[in-house]
Design a protein around this nucleic acid. Structure first.
Length: 352
DNA sequence: CATGGACCTGTAGAT
DNA sequence: CCCCACAGGTCCATC
C-alpha cells in the first residue's frame, strides 16, 4: 500500500495533460488478475510500467491502473482542452463507471468458475488461472487489432497498433516521458494512401486488409450505429456481417463478437485453442483448422463451458500465449484429459 | 466444399 | 553470421 502513493508523486505530466480523476475499486484477485487480463492477448494497448502497474488509453483518457491489496487504484488523465462540467466527485464516479464497463465487473467471475469446474476437470484441477476477465473493448479498435493479429505475435501487434495511433490518432499528452494517442476514428483512417502508408510502416499484407476494411465501413456501410446494430443482432447474423469485411475471417470475427459486441458465449478458435483441444480434449492430431474443424472445436467448448464460454476460453488461453522474446514456453502440458468427452461429443454431432 | 499456398515482418534459435 | 521457422489467419485458386 505504500508503493502506490510514492509512485504517483513522481509522475511527470506534459503541459497539455491534466489529471482528471483518481479512485479505488475494491476487487479480489480471484475476480481480477490485472496483468493476465490486460496483457494476455485480448488487448494490445496496455503497457506495464512496473509490476502491477499499467498505463493505457481508453476513449480520450490516459488510464493508469495499479493493483494492490485487493484494490484496483485508478487515475485518469485528459488533454487540458477536454472540458468537463463535472466536479471532482462526479469525475471519479464517471471514471469508475468506465472501468466497471470495460472490465465488465457486473459479471461475477467466481460464480462462472464454479460452473466451469463442474463440467471441466481442468478447471477443477486448478490448471486454469482465476481472475481473467474478458474486456469490453471498442469495436473498431478491436477489429483493426485482430486484423493485425493474423500470422503475427503480440509484441509486433502491439507495436503496430501503437504506430497506427501515433500516426492517425489525436494526441492526448505525455505522461512520464511517453506520449499517448487516442485510437484513430474511422474518419481519421479514411485516407486514400492508407495502404501504401501502412506498408511503409511495415504492416505487411495487413495494410491492404485495413485499408479495405476502413473503405468498406466508411463508404459501403456508412452507418455510425453499425456496431450497435451488430450488438443487438444474433451471433450468426452479426458474424456473417463481419465476415464481409476484408481481412476478417472466422477467427477475427469471433474475437470481435466476444470482445467488443458482448457475445459472451462465442469461443474463438486459434492455433492455441486448437492445440489445447488436441492436447487436453482429444481432438484428432494433425487435423488442420478447416472450417468444419473450427465449428466442431468451437461448439464443443461452447457446450462444455456454458455459460460465458468465451470467458472460459480467455482463461484457458492465457497460459498458452508466449511472445517470441520470452524464453519460457507455455505451461507444461500434463496428460490428456477429457479425451473421452470430445470423442463422445463428436459422435453426438454425427448422429444428430 | 475442402485443401494448399502465398502473404509481410521481426526475431529467437539452430547451423 | 546466415538461415529458417513461426507468430492468436485470411484470401484465392484449384480440385
Amino acid at each position: 500500500m505504500s508503493s502506490f502513493i510514492p509512485c504517483l508523486s513522481i509522475s511527470v505530466l506534459s503541459d497539455s495533460l491534466i489529471q482528471y480523476s483518481s479512485g479505488i475499486i475494491p476487487i479480489s484477485t480471484t475476480e481480477l488478475n490485472l496483468k493476465q487480463t490486460l496483457l494476455g492477448g485480448q488487448s494490445f494497448r496496455w503497457f506495464e510500467q512496473s509490476p502491477n502497474e499499467f498505463v493505457g488509453v481508453l476513449h480520450f483518457y490516459i488510464v493508469r491502473l495499479q493493483y494492490e491489496n485487493e484494490k484496483l487504484h485508478f487515475k485518469f488523465y485528459v488533454h487540458k482542452n477536454t472540458n468537463s462540467l463535472l466536479n471532482e466527485c462526479d469525475r471519479e464516479k464517471e471514471s469508475a463507471t468506465i472501468l466497471h464497463k470495460y472490465f465488465q465487473l457486473s459479471v461475477k467471475l467466481e460464480d462462472l468458475f464454479e460452473q466451469w469446474c463442474k463440467s471441466d476437470e481442468r478447471f477443477r484441477n486448478k490448471q486454469i488461472p482465476t481472475g481473467i476477465r474478458v474486456l469490453d473493448q471498442d469495436p473498431l479498435e478491436n477489429l483493426i487489432c485482430f486484423i493485425c493479429s493474423s500470422n503475427n505475435n503480440v509484441q509486433r501487434i502491439t507495436k503496430m497498433i501503437k504506430t497506427l495511433s501515433e500516426i492517425y490518432g489525436k494526441e492526448i499528452g505525455t505522461l512520464n516521458g511517453t506520449t499517448y494517442y487516442q485510437f484513430p476514428t474511422i474518419d481519421e483512417l479514411d485516407q486514400s494512401d492508407l495502404e501504401k502508408d501502412l506498408r511503409k510502416l511495415n504492416f505487411g499484407y495487413r495494410a491492404r486488409y485495413i485499408h479495405k476494411a476502413v473503405q468498406y465501413l466508411k463508404h459501403t456501410i456508412n452507418d455510425p450505429s453499425y456496431f450497435d446494430r451488430l450488438k443487438s443482432s444474433s451471433v450468426q447474423d452479426a458474424r456473417s456481417e463481419l465476415l464481409k469485411i476484408m481481412g476478417v475471417g472466422r477467427k477475427v470475427a469471433d474475437c470481435v463478437l466476444l470482445m467488443s459486441l458482448g457475445k459472451q458465449d462465442v469461443v474463438p478458435v486459434d492455433t492455441h485453442i486448437h492445440s489445447i483441444a488436441v492436447t487436453y480434449y482429444g481432438q484428432r492430431k494433425n487435423s488442420q483448422l478447416s472450417m468444419s474443424n473450427y465449428n466442431n472445436i468451437s461448439s464443443f467448448f461452447q457446450q462444455l463451458w456454458q455459460p460465458y464460454a468465451g470467458w472460459a476460453q480467455a482463461a484457458a488461453f492465457s497460459n498458452e500465449l508466449r511472445s517470441p522474446t520470452s524464453k519460457t514456453t507455455s505451461v507444461k502440458r500434463s496428460k490428456m484429459t477429457n479425451h473421452c468427452k470430445f470423442i463422445k461429443y463428436e459422435k453426438e454431432i454425427k448422429e444428430s
